[in-house]
C-alpha cells in the first residue's frame, strides 16, 4: 500500500509557568482521561524559593484544546488529554468540522480559477487560495493543468484565524513530495477528524490491518477527506466502507470485521 502522508504539526502555544514542574505532573496525571471545557489546571505558587537547590522550570507546550489563562491552564474542548514526550499536551477530540493549521496536508476541491490563483474548498470556514506557481515545475510559461472540480492534495502555507488560508503543492525545496493534482479514478469520502488522526498516527493499527487486505492507494487529508483507489471499483468500495465503519468500533470489533473480509466476503 502506498500512503502519502506528512508530519503533523500541532498548532501549539508554549506556556512557561514559573513553577511548572508541579503543573507538568498534574497534567501528566490526567493523561488519557476525558476532560470537559472549563476544567482547569491551576497551581499554587510557592512563596518560598529554595536557595540551595536549583529549580529547573520546565516548559509545557499546549496543543489544540488547551488554553492558558493567567496562571491557569484551561481546557476548551471536550475530549481525551494526550501527551507526547517530552512536554507536549493536547486534547484529542472527535469533531467533524476542520479548522486549518499551518503545515497540515488536506484534500481540497478546486472551485474557481481566477487569474493566477485557484480557490480551493477544503471544508473549512472559507476557501483557500492556491497559486498556479505553487506546483512542482510550474513556471509562468508552464502552467499546471488544473481544472475546476479537480482534487488537489496540498499543505497549508498560511493558516491562521485572521488571514485567508493559502495552500501550496510543493514543499520548502520545491518538490511535489506526494502533493499535487489527483489522477482519474478513485473515490473521495469523508470521515471524522478523530479517525483521520488515528489513521495518521505512527504505527496505526487500522492502517496495518488494512494493509494486510489488498493493495490500494490511500490519501489521507487532515480535513477529514479520504481518497481511495484499488484495483477494482468493488475493492475501492470495500476499503471505503471499512474505513467509514472504523469510526465507531472497538479494536476487537474491527479486527473481527477485517478478518471476515479477508476470509472472502468478497
Amino acid at each position: 500500500m502506498r500512503r502519502r502522508r506528512s508530519r503533523r504539526r500541532v498548532n501549539a502555544c508554549e506556556a512557561g509557568f514559573p513553577n511548572s514542574v508541579e503543573m507538568f505532573s498534574r497534567l501528566k496525571n490526567k493523561v488519557g482521561e476525558v476532560l470537559l471545557p472549563g476544567d482547569e489546571f491551576c497551581f499554587d505558587t510557592d512563596d518560598t524559593i529554595s536557595l540551595t537547590e536549583s529549580v529547573k522550570a520546565e516548559k509545557v507546550v499546549c496543543g489544540p484544546g488547551l488554553r492558558r489563562s493567567g496562571d491557569r491552564l484551561v481546557v476548551c474542548k471536550s475530549g481525551v488529554l494526550r501527551h507526547k514526550q517530552p512536554n507536549v499536551f493536547w486534547m484529542d477530540a472527535q469533531q467533524k468540522r476542520y479548522v486549518p493549521a499551518k503545515g497540515e496536508t488536506v484534500i481540497g476541491i478546486v472551485t474557481t480559477k481566477s487569474g493566477d490563483v485557484f480557490k480551493v474548498d477544503f471544508g473549512g470556514s472559507e476557501q483557500a487560495s492556491l497559486s498556479y506557481l505553487a506546483f512542482e515545475g510550474a513556471t509562468k510559461r508552464n502552467r499546471p493543468n488544473v481544472q475546476v472540480g479537480d482534487l488537489v492534495f496540498a499543505q497549508f502555507l498560511i493558516a491562521n484565524k485572521d488571514m485567508e488560508p493559502e495552500l501550496v503543492c510543493i514543499d520548502g525545496s520545491g518538490r511535489a513530495n506526494g502533493m499535487g493534482v489527483f489522477g482519474a479514478g478513485g473515490l473521495l469520502f469523508m470521515v471524522s477528524l478523530g479517525l483521520v488522526r488515528r489513521l495518521l498516527a505512527p504505527g496505526s493499527e487500522i492502517m496495518s490491518d488494512l494493509s494486510q487486505l489488498f493493495p490500494c492507494e490511500l490519501v489521507v487529508g487532515m480535513n477529514g477527506r479520504l481518497w481511495v483507489k484499488a484495483s477494482s471499483i468493488q475493492r475501492t468500495l470495500i476499503v471505503s466502507n471499512l474505513l467509514q465503519s472504523c469510526e465507531n468500533m472497538t479494536a476487537t470489533q474491527r479486527r473481527e470485521l477485517f478478518k471476515r473480509v479477508a476470509q472472502g466476503a468478497l
Binding site: L36, K77, Q94, Q95
Partner: peptide, 11 residues
Amino acid sequence: LMDAGLPMSCL
C-alpha cells in the same frame, strides 16, 4: 456545542 468541538470557556 461540545460535540461540535467548538472552543468553550466553560459549560
